[in-house]
Amino acid sequence: MPRGAAGGGALRVENLVAGYGQGTVLHEVSLHVAPGEIVTLVGRNGAGKTTLLRCVMGLHKPSAGRVLWGGSDVTAVAAHRRAAAGFGWVQDDRGVFATLTVEENLLLPKVSGGGWPLERIYEYFPALKQRRRSMGTQLSGGEQQMLALARVLRTGARLLLCDEPSEGLSPLFVDKIGEVLTQIKKDGIGVLLIEQNIRFASRVADRHYPLVDGRLQEPIANGDLAERELELLDHLGL
């Protein structure tokens, strides 16, 4: 399987249908994320955003449709192999391991080419270095979010699937996340971002996909956001 960088690193989702039991959550969803592009999914709670991310990561089995990575079909590939192929997932609750120290959280991922070495992580996130012996959940919410991002950078992911990284954080940490995402974009990594905070989304993203009741709407280019903001807020139910 090609790693993202070599194969162009484009994610393409085609006609994806997924659900739980008899209920369908996602209806024929198609989208793409190019390398170095940040794309947001915007929608109300329960619209199917997290399910879509889990399908892309391989943690939830879609009932129809395909996930393509650099041109090859990865729909049937297991999550840990997708991770090796360049997929990275940052969970909405950050997914920090409580029974692992900060450093163990960073050492756990399988590191492949392009993964950030520990020194670079500590340089970039000095707070984590200070607290590297603490257990994962002894960190503050913001620090945990940093850890979750840092951890996925260790894997050398070429595509980040971020589930509401700014949720519940102080402005200081939101700024830091914006900084990290901008850096990632510069490195040519694609990002599929779930975000409710439109201020934050508009600062970093290239396109916005509204997701309404499991159906993806026409994307809005970031440049058009100012004039179509009301439309987007309507989709969010705000």
Partner: peptide, 18 residues
């Protein structure tokens, strides 16, 4: 470490390539 992680959050561990 791997077993602890897999015990605590199997899906997160898988997404990290374990």
């Amino acid at each position: 470490m791997v077993v602890r992680a897999a015990t605590e959050r199997p899906d997160v561990a898988r997404a990290l390539g374990v």
